[in-house]
Write a protein that binds this DNA or RNA. Structure first.
Lengths: 109, 109
DNA sequence: CAGGATACCTTGACTATCTACACATCATTG
DNA sequence: CAATGATGTGTAGATAGTCAAGGTATCCTG
């Protein structure tokens, strides 16, 4: 596999959903935005991104529509559904729960 | 596989190393301690624990020795090596880097 | 003597991610 | 005008970490 250097496994869905929460974006823009906001720490590979998007679409958490991008090219825009919004809440809560627990252990007395 | 409900994938090594940093422990005690410190949030399954311990041993980050446990039974005690201590530092730093980056995205304006 | 806790471990399956490709369009540059 | 790099979509194969479920054995308690 090549263990994830640039990603914490299991958090990609959360990152994508969160990135789409503000406004619909195409895949390329999603990856760029995650990278930018995380200050270049998180790098989403295409081989991770597109399977993830298809997965999320199949779950009904996002929908896709072809449209014109900012640069005037055809691109697939993904939008969060209401189900997706709930899933985002669940995943956010779960992340806080787990990362908090790990931090407890890491900073253990 | 069943995606990890009780663990964030890739953090088990960190958790184990950190738990061993204070004092040597046997496998069972490691799992119990992680569970206890994380307030029952993190559950380390045995099918995850023992392969991880063998992995860490092979990497030279921990060493194993048979000894008598608190309950008077034979148990394999794992101890952190100096290499393991360095690895713990690396993994701790990496965890902070990545979890911090994720938190940036999650709390994105 | 049955049952539960302690303690070790393995096997098989699954899934997320990675690396590496393949394809296409557009803008810039030599 | 050809090459290059950025944008944009996607797939194929490999790998590793985790889980579920099992096995073995000892000790203590009722």
């Amino acid at each position: 596999m090549g263990k994830p250097n640039d990603l914490v496994q299991g958090t990609l869905d959360l990152l994508i959903l969160r990135t789409l929460a503000n406004q619909p974006k195409h895949g390329w823009a999603i990856a760029k935005r995650i990278q930018q906001i995380s200050k270049e720490v998180l790098q989403v590979q295409q081989g991770s991104l597109y399977p993830a998007l298809h997965r999320l679409e199949q779950q009904g958490w996002i929908t896709a529509k072809w449209a014109e991008s900012e640069t005037g090219r055809q691109a697939k825009f993904y939008r969060l559904t209401s189900h997706g919004r709930k899933q985002l809440e669940r995943e956010t809560a779960n992340w806080k729960r787990l990362s908090g627990a790990i931090n407890l252990v890491v900073s253990e007395a």
